[in-house]
Amino acid sequence: MTNNPLISVIVPVYNVERYLNKCLQSIIHQSYDNLEIILIDDGSTDNSGKIIDEYGKRDSRIKIVHQENGGLSKARNAGLNMMRGDYVTFIDSDDFVTLDYVSYLFRLIENTRFQAKLSLCSLMNHYSRTNKDINCGNGLEKVISGKKCIEMMCYHDLVDTCAYAKLAKRELYDTVRFPNGKLFEDIGTTYQLFLQCDKVACGFKAKYYYNIRSNSIVTSKFSESKLELLEMTDQMAGEVKDIYPELSNSVLRRQVYARFSTLNQTLDTPNVSHIQQRLIKFIQGHKRNVLNDPKTPKRDHVAYALLSLGLPFYKIGWHLYEKLKGIK
Rank of each mutant, 00 (worst) to 15 (best):
S248C: 12
M124P: 04
C121D: 04
V102T: 03
Q67T: 12
T296P: 06
I243V: 13
G43C: 09
H29Y: 14
Q196L: 06
V218P: 00
M83R: 06
E68C: 06
D160F: 11
L120S: 09
Q30C: 03
F194V: 00
G139W: 05
T266K: 07
C136Y: 09
S273D: 13
M124G: 03
D157E: 15
L35K: 02
V11Y: 01
N289F: 11
N271H: 14
N34R: 14
N3Q: 13
I51G: 08
F184M: 02
V302F: 14
K169T: 06
K22T: 13
K50L: 15
D174N: 15
F194P: 00
S273K: 14
L263H: 06
Y104I: 02
K241R: 15
K117H: 09
L105D: 01
Y173I: 00
N21L: 08
S145N: 05
G317E: 08
F184G: 05
V143C: 06
L291H: 04
I109W: 00
D42S: 07
D59Q: 06
C202Y: 01
C154A: 14
R61W: 02
V97E: 02
R177Y: 10
I109H: 04
I38V: 08
M124R: 14
E110G: 00
A201W: 00
G49W: 03
E185G: 10
V251I: 05
S103V: 03
R129A: 15
R170D: 01
K74D: 11
D100T: 12
K182F: 12
E322A: 04
A201I: 01
H126Y: 15
H29V: 00
E68D: 13
E36L: 03
E110R: 14
R299Y: 14
R299C: 11
A237L: 05
S145V: 04
I327N: 13
P294A: 12
K63A: 07
D186T: 09
Y304V: 07
S214Y: 11
I62A: 08
V200Y: 00
N180K: 10
I7R: 02
C23K: 00
I150W: 04
Y19F: 14
A201S: 09
L6S: 04
Y155W: 09
C136T: 15
F204N: 14
I212R: 14
L307D: 08
E231V: 13
K147Q: 08
Q196R: 10
H274V: 10
Y127D: 03
L311W: 07
D234K: 14
A305W: 05
L247P: 04
K50C: 10
Y14S: 09
G188Q: 08
L140M: 14
K132T: 09
F260S: 08
M232A: 13
S119Q: 06
E54Q: 13
Y314N: 07
F114W: 10
L230W: 05
G238K: 12
K147M: 01
A168R: 00
I109N: 03
S223Q: 08
Y314T: 04
G56C: 07
D92W: 02
D174H: 11
Y55L: 08
M153C: 11
G310Q: 10
